[in-house]
């Protein structure tokens, strides 16, 4: 079984907080229920439309294979069964930055991932960031609830 790096249900709070800049891509702001994580994510809304108020499950996984074999880095498409089958929207990207924000008890960790230019910012308690490493390749899987 795959170890997810992160899994939670998010509620979309805002679409395009800074105004719509791109035709096909929108930036969503969302907040998770379980870990109270804050997320910004660029989503290709042309093929996967989202609206404020939508609830979705988001999973970050290191590989798509069901048995947990690590991702090779090469893309080999094929009809094999994979984790993606259960989800509606899957992206692949790379973790490029981890930074801290605030101080004391309110300290938050920010995790930045780029999915080929579509960016994700995940902000929350440091305890949730233990599984993440720099330069990690990971998959983002989404499914509306």
């Amino acid at each position: 079984m795959v170890d997810f790096l992160f899994e939670d249900i998010f509620t979309l709070t805002k679409l395009d907080p800074d105004g719509k800049k791109f035709d096909k891509v929108s930036r969503i702001e969302a907040r998770s229920e379980q870990f109270d994580m804050y997320m910004q994510l660029d989503v290709n809304t042309e093929i996967y439309p989202l609206h404020p108020g939508d609830k979705f499950t988001m999973v970050l996984a290191p590989t798509l294979s069901l048995d947990g074999t690590p991702d090779s880095g090469y893309f080999a498409p094929g009809g094999r069964k994979s984790l993606a089958d259960k989800f509606e929207y899957v992206m692949h990207g790379k973790l490029f930055k981890i930074s801290e924000e605030g101080s004391g008890p309110n300290v938050k960790v920010e995790i930045y991932v780029s999915f080929g230019g579509l960016l994700m910012l995940l902000k929350g308690d440091p305890s949730n960031a233990a599984n993440f490493e720099l330069d990690q390749r990971l998959f983002l899987l989404m499914r509306k609830v």
């Binding site: 509606e88 992206m91 692949h92 990207g93 998959f139």
Partner: peptide
């Protein structure tokens, strides 16, 4: 490279 978007379409 691996496509940035895998599902619903490879992009």
């Amino acid at each position: 490279p691996t496509p940035a978007l895998i599902k619903p379409v490879e992009l």
